[in-house]
């Protein structure tokens, strides 16, 4: 990471009026973020007034989106506000550090939030950035840098702030769960993780509630879109359960509690073939590690 030298100056870190919720007592709740922005970027004049949100206070900060964080495994949110001067113009930036329970939780949130990735070479951690926002993930930390003004002159400052917050975060090895799915035909950037109904919502509607028993069993699922030829792209999902009986129960539960728009085409104890509202087919197979799911097939297998 290049030094934060682009001629910008952090004038003041925080203004209390930005608070939308009361910080919780942070003692013992949030692992410290060792990298202090002041060390990395220079003239930070103040660091007081930071906000901290424990899990039960997250709704107060991101009303409408907190469920997804809690579902993946959320420890705490640290928010710092910065005032940055670039070429005589003052900009307000905010750094939101979401501490998640484990690397899969942090990556899951990142993948759910990233959209099309547009990274810069200036940051080593996986990230995407535009003039309004930078999202990054490393270890158990999911980071969001906001620039509501949208001035692209702030991009170097946003990148520098992200790098400084991520600096002490140990890198983790890649998550191996995608190895359960074929590599051939996978569309780059289409990967996602699931730990419950909220992450599943934008992917597919199997039914109401925790129909795949992801939350009940603590299962982790990974998926991606695949080039499907003339029939269109398909989505493949690997759901890894802790015990074989959990996978069997989930298959039976899906069959019994499936969405009213899902028609059973074929079913036995090992496999379920469904037809959805769009006339596409889904196959759910019981395998030795859990359930292997293929969605949006043009023809019945």
């Amino acid at each position: 990471m290049k030094a934060a030298t682009a001629g910008w100056l952090l004038l003041a870190a925080v203004w209390g009026g930005a608070a939308r919720g009361a910080p919780a007592d942070r003692a013992g709740e949030m692992p410290p973020i060792a990298a202090q922005t002041s060390a990395a970027v220079g003239d930070v004049l103040a660091q007081d007034g930071d906000l901290y949100f424990a899990p039960n206070g997250l709704y107060g900060y991101i009303n409408g989106g907190a469920e997804l964080y809690l579902e993946f495994g959320f420890v705490g949110l640290d928010v710092k506000h910065y005032r940055v001067e670039i070429a005589g113009k003052v900009h307000d930036l905010a750094v939101e550090s979401y501490r998640m329970t484990d690397p899969a939780a942090a990556l899951g949130i990142y993948l759910a939030r990233k959209g099309r990735e547009t990274p810069t070479a200036e940051l080593a951690a996986r990230h995407t950035v535009n003039s309004y926002q930078l999202l990054a993930v490393q270890g158990t930390l999911f980071l969001q840098v906001n620039n509501f003004g949208g001035d692209s002159a702030c991009l170097p400052a946003m990148t520098t702030l992200a790098a400084s917050h991520l600096a002490s975060e140990p890198p983790v090895p890649p998550l191996g769960i995608w190895d359960l799915l074929p590599a051939a035909g996978r569309l780059p950037g289409s990967e996602f993780l699931l730990r419950g109904r909220f992450a599943l919502q934008p992917i597919y509607t199997f039914g109401e509630g925790d129909v795949l028993l992801l939350e009940e069993t603590g299962a982790l699922a990974a998926g991606a879109r695949y080039s499907g030829g003339p029939g269109g792209d398909v989505t493949r999902i690997a759901v890894v359960y802790g015990a074989a009986q959990d996978a069997r129960r989930a298959l039976a539960n899906l069959r019994a509690q499936r969405d009213p728009y899902l028609e059973v085409v074929r079913a036995d104890l090992q496999r379920l073939v469904l037809r959805d509202y769009a006339g596409k087919y889904s196959v759910i197979c019981l395998v030795d590690w859990g359930l292997e799911i293929t969605l949006s097939l043009a023809a019945a297998p």
Binding site: G207, E208, Q257, P260, Y261, L262, E263, V264, A267, Y277
Partner: peptide
């Protein structure tokens, strides 16, 4: 209530 389609021989779960 959101109408339930009639296709399929095996009945899906009744919507809440």
């Amino acid at each position: 209530v959101l109408g339930r389609p009639s296709f399929g021989q095996e009945q899906a779960a009744a919507p809440p």
